[in-house]
Nucleic acid binder design. Structure first.
Lengths: 159, 159
DNA sequence: CACAATTATATTGCACACAATTTAATTGTG
DNA sequence: CACAATTAAATTGTGTGCAATATAATTGTG
């Protein structure tokens, strides 16, 4: 689309414009496409993708606080509180204040919530197939995105 | 985190679970981080990232219909109509029905909207720097994400 | 030309994402 | 111990993202 003649040192030149711009959009649109791919599969379990992420965290380690879940998923109480209330409403989790520190809310899976893990197992596989990527590709892309995310988050806190 | 012993043919094994799971989440969280990186930069221009994307499209080619913009950005009227109304409200674009086909709404940049392009030029560069990637890396990641997106979208229409 | 089908946008409703503020509990300090 | 500071969630408000539906204009067909 445009010819980049900048040397391969760092992405600081004005010529970078379109490349980085394209990357951001590629990231943004690929992420939305991924969510759309998950949607019909998760709909069978009556879940949204963010709700599914919370369950993944809880299936790995149950009884976490809202904050711990938020740290794992890079989101805060403004997002999590209403989401968790919905998960509670459909009977997948329980929310209860910690006895030793009543500021904390402990999230626990119900039996139904635990059982859902088995049904959800297929979901991953189907999405992985839809990516059309090999395992190696998935793993490489994964590492690159994690590096990118780390870089972006670090620049956020210390600009 | 877990040992994958599946051969490198396709991502269809049950062992894939956590890897693809990580990729989807890496994509999701990297995309959100990117938006957060843009946020303070775009706030100076009183823009959100999706609004900025619409302007990018219009700066490239003005006078498009809602649909054309939607095709470019992979989004529909449900998202675009309110977004475009906000851009109109802050005086960056104009919305007017096409005279030859009154179902269509033509989006045109105002003078203010055109002038904003200059001020927005810095934004790309700053975000590119925050990625901590070289140009080569940005370009490669970009291509991979486009491939991934294409694959996902194709699987969506023909499952 | 009437009228069903199609097309383009708008509307509605729900679920995030996130900044900013509030509330309530706990901790630290004099 | 009182009280300011801190911490953990919840709340509020704005802006998407998207499915489903509605509305209005245009096109295709008999």
């Amino acid at each position: 689309m445009e010819n980049i003649t900048t040397p391969q040192t760092s992405a600081s030149s004005a010529k970078v414009l379109n490349v980085d711009l394209q990357l951001c959009f590629a990231l943004y649109s690929a992420s939305l496409s991924m969510t759309k791919t998950y949607k019909p599969l998760l709909a069978k379990l009556k879940l949204t993708y963010p709700q599914y992420l919370v369950l993944l965290v809880l299936w790995e380690k149950d009884g976490l606080t809202v904050n711990s879940i938020g740290e794992r998923l890079f989101s805060d109480s403004g997002t999590l509180t209403p989401l968790l209330k919905r998960l509670e409403k459909i009977g997948l989790i329980q929310r209860q204040r910690a006895i030793e520190d009543e500021r904390k809310v402990i999230i626990t899976l119900t039996e139904h919530g635990k059982l859902l893990q088995t049904q959800a197992a297929d979901v991953h596989t189907q999405v992985a197939c839809s990516t059309g990527c090999t395992l190696t590709e998935l793993k490489e892309l994964n590492s690159q995105l994690i590096l990118l995310r780390t870089s972006l988050i670090n620049k956020l806190v210390t600009p």
